[in-house]
Nucleic acid binder design. Structure first.
Length: 479
RNA sequence: GGCGGCAUAGCCAAGCGGUAAGGCAAGGGUUUGCAAAACCCUCAUACCCCGGUUCGAAUCCGGGUGCCGCCUCCA
C-alpha cells in the first residue's frame, strides 16, 4: 500500500490513480532566466524519487514537466517585469537565447543528479495557441474580465477558490500589502493574458483575440497538463511556495474551464532547503549552484545522498559541514558496495539492477527488501529506507550476494549510482611521482623502511599520498 | 497583522501510544614496519519547558518558550 501525503486532504492517503496502472504526473519545472540553485534542485530530486517509487510499486508513469520561458513576472501580483526579458537585458542576449541556455544548464544539473528525464518536457512558448484556447473557454464561462493591461480571472466566480491552500481570503485582504493592479475586482484575481506595454517592445509576444501580448504565468500549467495528460490528472508536484498562489490559481482556472473536480487528485509539495540565516533565494546571498558544489570537490550524487537523508516534507538545513558528512556517508556506502562486489566471482559481480531482492535470496536477505519498500511506501520515507539499507549492509548474518541483491533492489529507487560503483582507478600521475612510488615499493620490499619513509615524505611534498594495498600493491592519490 | 510547520545525542535525522532506526563526527580495540584501509566495540534512563489524559507518552490534549516557512521574487 503506497501512502502519499496529499495537500488537498492534509493527510497521507493510499495512492490510487484514475486508471491504474497508468499514472499521470505533472511537475512544475523551472523558469529559465537563471541557473537553478541547490534549493530548486531539491524539489526535482524529490519528484524524481516519487517517480521512481511509483515505478517500484508497479505504476506506469507518464511524467510531464513544463519549462517556463515566458510570462513569469518578477511579482506574482501581476506587476513587475517578465523575468525572461529581465534576464535578457542583464546578459545582453535575447530572451530566446536566455531560455535555451538556462534550459540546457538545468537539464545538465538534473542529469548529474541522476534525475530521470521526464517523458514530456514542454515549453510555454510552444503552447501559446493552447493557452489562448483555454482563456477563451474561461471567457465563455463568464469568469473573466478585461482591464487596461490584460484579461483577468474573477476569483469570486469560483466559490472553492483557495480551498487547497486553506486561504483565509478576508485575512488576506486585511493584511494585504501587495501593490494591486488598478481595477482588480478581488485581491486574489490574476492575469490570464497580459497586453504588451504600449511604451516598449517586448521580445516575446503573440497576437490573441484580446490584443497582442503574452500569457499569464499560471495558465501554462493548466493548458499543457491538459494537452499532455488530459483534463484530470493523478499527481501534480511542486514546492510549498506554490501552494498559496500558483497552484491555487491553476486549480481555479482549470476547474472553472472544465467543470471537472478535482482537476488534480494528489497535490504533493516538497519543502524548502534552508540556510542557517533563512531560505535559499535567487535574490540576495546564499545562491548556491550545483556547479559551486562540484567546484568544492563534491560528487553531485553526494548532494543527492544529502537530500535523501531528510524527508521531503521537512525543511532541510544546508551547510557545507552537513554536505561533508553526507559525502563521507555516501563514499562509505559506495566502498561497502565495492567491497561486496570484490567478494563475488567476476561473473556475478555485475549488479543486477532492478532485480527484486526476493528472486533468489528470499531465505537469506531477511525482510530488508520488504522493509525498504515499506519505508518508501510510507510517503517516501527515504531516511528510513536508507537506514534499513545500512542496517542490512552491516548485518553479519547476510552473505555478500544477498547484500548486493538488496543494493540492486534499492538502487532503482535511490538513484545513487550504486549500480556502477567501480574500483578506484589508479590516478594518472606524473612520471616522477610514479618513479618515487616505485622506488619506495622497492625499499619496502628490501625492508629499508627508513628510505621508504623518506620517499613517502617526498611524495607528500609533491602533493601525493601513497596507500599500501595487500599483495605488495600500492595506490598513489592526490592529496 | 493573518496562516502553517518544526523543536529527538557534538552535527544531520527516523520515530505516528508500548518502552529511543540509521548516517556523520568522536573514543577504545584488533591488524598493519609507518600511514591509510579493513574489522570489532562504545556513544541519548532519554526526546525544549510546565501541566493533563493513560497501566503506559518523544508520540495524544492544554499552556508556555524558541526557531522556520508562506501571505512579497522564489523550488
Amino acid at each position: 500500500m503506497f501512502k502519499l501525503y496529499n495537500t488537498l486532504t492534509r493527510a497521507k492517503d493510499e495512492f490510487a490513480p484514475i486508471a491504474a496502472p497508468a499514472v499521470g504526473l505533472y511537475t512544475c519545472g523551472p523558469t529559465v532566466y537563471n541557473f537553478a540553485h541547490i534549493g530548486n534542485l531539491r524539489t526535482y530530486v524529490f519528484e524524481d524519487v516519487l517517480r521512481r517509487a511509483l515505478a517500484r510499486f508497479g505504476f506506469k508513469v507518464k511524467h510531464v514537466m513544463n519549462i517556463t520561458d515566458v510570462g513569469h513576472l518578477t511579482s506574482d501580483a501581476d506587476t513587475g517585469e517578465d523575468k525572461m526579458e529581465l534576464g535578457a537585458r542583464r546578459e545582453g542576449k535575447t530572451a530566446w537565447d536566455i531560455a535555451r541556455f538556462y534550459t540546457e544548464a538545468f537539464t545538465a544539473d538534473c542529469r548529474r543528479l541522476n534525475v530521470l528525464a521526464p517523458d514530456v518536457v514542454c515549453k510555454a512558448t510552444d503552447h501559446i495557441p493552447e493557452m489562448i484556447a483555454l482563456v477563451r473557454r474561461l471567457e465563455e464561462k463568464g469568469v473573466t474580465y478585461r482591464l487596461a493591461d490584460g484579461i483577468y480571472f474573477d476569483t469570486s466566480k469560483f466559490p472553492a477558490y483557495g480551498a487547497m491552500a486553506r486561504l483565509d481570503i478576508d485575512g488576506l485582504e486585511a493584511g494585504a500589502r501587495v501593490e494591486m493592479v488598478e481595477g482588480k475586482r478581488n485581491p486574489t484575481d490574476f492575469a490570464l493574458w497580459k497586453f504588451s506595454p504600449k511604451d516598449k517592445q517586448r521580445q516575446m509576444e503573440w497576437d490573441a483575440p484580446w490584443g497582442r501580448g503574452f500569457p499569464g504565468w499560471h495558465i501554462e500549467c493548466s493548458a499543457m497538463s491538459m494537452k499532455h495528460l488530459g483534463e484530470q490528472i493523478d499527481i501534480h508536484c511542486g514546492a510549498v511556495d506554490h501552494i498559496a498562489v500558483h497552484h491555487t490559481n491553476e486549480i481555479a482556472q482549470s476547474e472553472a474551464a472544465t467543470g471537472k473536480s478535482p482537476w488534480v487528485r494528489w497535490w504533493v509539495h516538497g519543502e524548502f532547503l534552508v540556510l542557517d540565516k533563512g531560505k535559499m533565494a535567487k535574490s540576495g546571498g546564499g545562491f548556491i549552484t550545483l556547479d559551486a558544489v562540484i567546484k568544492k570537490g563534491f560528487d553531485p550524487l553526494a548532494y543527492r545522498y544529502f537530500l535523501l537523508q531528510a524527508h521531503y516534507r521537512s525543511q532541510l538545513m544546508f551547510s557545507w559541514e552537513g554536505l561533508e558528512a553526507a559525502a563521507n556517508g555516501y563514499r562509505n556506502l559506495r566502498e561497502t558496495v565495492l567491497g561486496l562486489k570484490e567478494q563475488l566471482p567476476v561473473a556475478s559481480s555485475q549488479l543486477p539492477v532492478g532485480k527484486p531482492a526476493t528472486d533468489n535470496c528470499q531465505l537469506t536477505t531477511g525482510n530488508y527488501g520488504e522493509r525498504f519498500d515499506d519505508a518508501v511506501a510510507d510517503d517516501l520515507n527515504m531516511p528510513r529506507a536508507l537506514g534499513t539499507l545500512w542496517e542490512a549492509l552491516k548485518d553479519g548474518g547476510l552473505s555478500a550476494a544477498a547484500k548486493l541483491a538488496l543494493v540492486a533492489h534499492a538502487e532503482p529507487v535511490l538513484g545513487l549510482g550504486l549500480d556502477r560503483v567501480e574500483a578506484e582507478k589508479p590516478a594518472e600521475v606524473p612520471a616522477d611521482v610514479a618513479e618515487l612510488a616505485e622506488r619506495r615499493a622497492a625499499a619496502r620490499k628490501s625492508k629499508d623502511f627508513a628510505a621508504a619513509d623518506v620517499l613517502r615524505k617526498e611524495l607528500a611534498a609533491k602533493g601525493y599520498e601513497v596507500e599500501d594495498r595487500p599483495g605488495g600493491k600500492w595506490l598513489v592519490k592526490r592529496k
